[in-house]
Simulated scan of single mutants.
Amino acid sequence: MFQLDDNFLQEVGLGSLPDDQKQAFLAHFREQLEMIVGTKLSEGLSDQQLGEFESFIDRKSDRVSAWLATNAPNYEQDAVYQQLRANAPDNVPADVLLAEYASLKWLGMNRPNYRDVVAQTMNELKQEIIANRDAILGGDASAA
């Protein structure tokens, strides 16, 4: 969908940040993106739905397996699961892969617009960074 990397920093005008500050900035940006998207996606969900999704995030294997058995019993044949498995590093535990798949499947069922929400939020945050680029660079430059 998108990459938070040096290309992203160049795009928003922060490519000149020192390497250590680049990583810190990208980590902060990712946290903000996840928090805002999570807040937007959780609006209107029931406590039961929120609990379900949290069990995927927390990798509660028993709950993930139960949800998959009910909602995606043939997940191994699903192209999304196959792609996740093919692209995952060799050392990724099976329960992590299943939780990731379940969260994507759950979002598709309960928040089919989640990709649009992520893209819109990403764009809003990028515009905010671009608008404040000089202050960000000035603040980082004075701290160095």
Rank of each mutant, 00 (worst) to 15 (best):
A102E: 05
Q3N: 11
A94L: 10
E124Y: 05
A79G: 13
N91E: 14
E52I: 03
L9N: 03
A66P: 01
L68C: 05
L45S: 09
G13L: 06
Q10G: 04
E11D: 15
I129K: 05
P18S: 05
Q77Y: 14
E76N: 12
V37F: 07
Q48P: 00
Q48Y: 07
M35E: 14
V80T: 13
L14I: 13
F2N: 13
F29A: 12
V92M: 12
K22T: 07
W67K: 01
M35Q: 15
A79Q: 13
S61E: 15
S103H: 03
D95F: 05
S16P: 01
M109A: 13
Q32A: 15
G51A: 03
D20I: 09
L4M: 14
L97Q: 02
L41R: 04
L84S: 06
M109W: 01
Y75G: 03
K22P: 09
R59S: 10
N74V: 05
S65Q: 13
E76H: 09
K126R: 09
A88H: 10
D19A: 12
V118N: 04
Q49G: 12
V12A: 01
V37K: 00
R85C: 05
D58A: 07
P89A: 14
M122H: 11
A66Q: 09
N71C: 02
L33N: 08
I57F: 10
Y75D: 03
L17V: 06
E11P: 00
D6T: 08
A72Q: 03
F25C: 08
Y101C: 00
W106V: 00
L68A: 02
Q3G: 03
E100W: 02
V64W: 01
L68M: 09
L97P: 08
L9V: 08
D78W: 01
E31R: 14
Q3Y: 13
Y114M: 04
R85S: 11
Q82D: 13
M109G: 00
A99T: 08
L26R: 09
D6V: 02
Q48W: 07
M109I: 04
A88W: 10
Y114D: 00
F53K: 03
V64Y: 04
D140C: 13
N87A: 14
K105Y: 03
N132A: 10
L14E: 05
D116Y: 02
T39F: 11
Q49V: 08
I36L: 14
Q82W: 05
T121S: 02
S61N: 13
D140H: 12
F2Y: 15
Y101D: 00
G138P: 00
R115L: 15
Y114V: 02
M109V: 02
A72F: 09
A27H: 11
W67A: 01
L98Y: 00
S65I: 01
L104K: 06
S46Q: 12
K60H: 14
S42M: 10
A86P: 06
L45E: 03
Q127V: 10
E76T: 15
E54N: 15
L97H: 02
A99S: 11
N113I: 10
G38W: 09
E43A: 15
A66C: 05
F2K: 11
H28Y: 10
G15E: 09
V117H: 04
P73T: 12
N71S: 04
R63N: 03
Y81T: 05
T121L: 08
L68V: 08
S42Y: 10
L137T: 01
